[in-house]
């Protein structure tokens, strides 16, 4: 198999917010007419492997109903697309229609499971233009689904964990932690050290909770 040496167009900078870079072949399409309603369009002659570039490094490849019905030729295009750039998030829009329906599940396996790209079905070019418009506009808003770095309060997490020790409720947990303020310190305390705080039986129980072997299968 021949390897394609230069991923030409995808190395272009992504367009500014509110813009879409679009390959020439779409100039007269209904998809483009739809995009013009909400976005500014820039044309690029040589968008070798992608159909559209969106702000914030998103690119798009469009798989039409015709592509899917005509056979597996478009798979090569998808592989080239995937190999072209890793700095872009690569989306694939596919026309899922009554005609292409039967091919969709195989396409999904190839695009999502084999190639690891994101696949978004659309009913046709008009729906595609609406979805693309929302992708572009979304970049101007905060994304609520984005992974955030954690900022949970370790104090309350630790208190909740200590209360998971059998026989330890809130009052005992606080008493224990006033003397041994971390889980590690509680776990490493000897029964003799725990006894004045919780009594002999509990001291023994707490110690063995941390130290008894968890033999599997019984």
């Amino acid at each position: 198999l021949k390897i394609f040496p230069k991923p030409t167009a995808l190395v272009n900078a992504a367009p500014p917010y509110g813009h879409v870079v679009c390959s020439e072949k779409w100039r007269t399409s209904s998809l483009l007419r739809g995009l013009k309603a909400g976005l500014k369009i820039l044309f690029e002659n040589e968008l070798a492997v992608a159909d559209f570039l969106l702000p914030n490094k998103v690119c798009l490849l469009y798989v039409s109903e015709g592509d899917m019905v005509a056979g597996n030729g478009f798979r090569r295009k998808l592989v080239r697309y995937r190999n072209a750039s890793s700095s872009f998030q690569q989306l694939v829009l596919a026309e899922r229609t009554r005609l292409s329906e039967q091919y969709f599940s195989a396409l999904q396996k190839f695009v999502v499971l084999d190639l690891g790209l994101s696949l978004l079905p659309v009913g046709g070019q008009t729906e595609a233009s609406q979805l693309i418009t929302q992708i572009v506009h979304g970049e101007g808003r905060e994304n609520p689904f984005r992974r955030r770095t954690s900022c949970r309060l370790l104090d309350s997490i630790t208190l909740a964990m200590v209360q998971q020790i059998p026989g330890v409720g809130k009052v005992r947990a606080v008493t224990l932690m006033q003397n041994f303020p971390s889980i590690q310190e509680i776990s490493n305390a000897s029964p003799a050290e725990l006894e004045p705080l919780v009594g002999q039986a509990s001291a023994q129980q707490i110690h063995s909770f941390f130290h008894a072997h968890l033999t599997p299968g019984n």
Binding site: V58, Q89, L91, R96, F104, Q108, V112, S118, L119, L120, P121, L131, Q134, I135, G138, E139, N143, P144, F145, R146, R147
Partner: peptide, 13 residues
């Protein structure tokens, strides 16, 4: 859909 995809959540249909 756009927000899910951009947040890195994988969609399957």
């Amino acid at each position: 859909i756009a927000a899910l995809v951009r947040a890195g959540i994988r969609l399957l249909w």
